[in-house]
């Protein structure tokens, strides 16, 4: 009885945080919905929300979706072998994760993207090296391909970290047992490693898919301003066109789309994603 009382009293500690959630998470969302659904004259409108179906906006949306999907798949394909290699060599938290993944994050990400621009540009480092070997220059600069390289580079760590956490917790005995019972490498992966790393994989997907779909800086730097992702369209409604209603409407559409696709992803997750990133 006494213990229960103390527990109930302890919930009061969450008060500052709850106030913060209401003030700076919930109310801003209410505000953006209000700006999206109410026009300048103060009456209800669906125009701003439905503007997403305008062909120009739809094109940006589909391109963003394709880039995000491509980025997520590539990150998964790159991260699994890496995490398995780290597990194999027992290179844990201190060595690779800190120096390999966290350290680069401390260099400003826009500057890192600019470095990629120099590497990939027409007279850039990559084409200089290719030219040295007599290979014709690759026209990667300012295409969707260079944007894809940029987002994979930027968000790969966010796939590796949760996946590493999930896979490093798998008991070696289970894998040994499967091998003793005659399972080959592929069967072990499919039947043991993949299911047991599912929570990590799912939070990795969320952490890669959402930002790669909505970033506007990557397209700005590596797309040369020619390629408009949905993030660029929204940003310009606020900065250049100063149509806040339309910008809010597109943001709300984007948010609804992202939340629905994430809800589908998380539905497969039995445990929720607590602690999965660290």
């Amino acid at each position: 009885m006494e213990k229960k009382k103390r527990l109930n009293k302890r919930t009061w500690l969450s008060a500052p945080y709850l106030i913060w959630i209401v003030g700076f998470t919930i109310i801003p969302l209410v505000v953006i919905f209000q700006d999206a659904f109410v026009n300048a004259e103060g009456s209800f409108t669906m125009d701003n929300i439905l503007a997403i179906f305008n062909p120009i906006h739809m094109k940006s949306m589909i391109l963003s979706l394709a880039i995000a999907a491509g980025c997520t798949v590539i990150c998964i394909l790159l991260a699994y072998p890496l995490v398995l290699a780290l597990r194999r060599l027992n290179m844990g938290r201190e060595g690779f994760l800190v120096f390999g993944l966290i350290l680069p994050m401390w260099m400003n990400f826009i500057l890192r993207l600019l470095a990629w621009q120099m590497i990939l540009s027409k007279n850039g480092i990559l084409n200089m090296i290719l030219g040295f070997f007599g290979i014709a220059p690759l026209p990667i600069a300012n295409t969707w391909l260079s944007i894809l390289i940029g987002v994979v580079y930027d968000y790969l760590p966010f796939m590796i970290l949760p996946l590493y956490n999930a896979i490093s917790e798998i008991d070696e005995d289970i894998i040994e047992a499967a091998k003793d019972l005659g399972a080959g490498g592929f069967t072990v992966f499919k039947k043991i490693i993949l299911p047991l790393s599912m929570p990590g994989l799912l939070s990795g997907i969320v952490m890669v898919f959402v930002p790669s779909m909505t970033s506007f800086v990557v397209a700005d730097v590596l797309g040369g301003g020619k390629i408009q992702l949905i993030g660029n369209v929204i940003e310009q409604e606020f900065t250049k066109n100063v149509d806040w209603g339309l910008g809010s409407g597109l943001s709300v559409s984007l948010m609804i789309f992202v939340l629905i696709s994430m809800a589908f992803t998380m539905k497969n997750d039995p445990e929720g994603k607590e602690s999965a990133i660290w």
Partner: peptide, 17 residues
């Protein structure tokens, strides 16, 4: 919510507020 939501949406919503 702030982790799932796109940065751009979080930023705009806070700015509008």
């Amino acid at each position: 919510i702030p982790m799932l939501n796109a940065d751009i949406v979080t930023g705009i919503a806070l700015m509008l507020w």
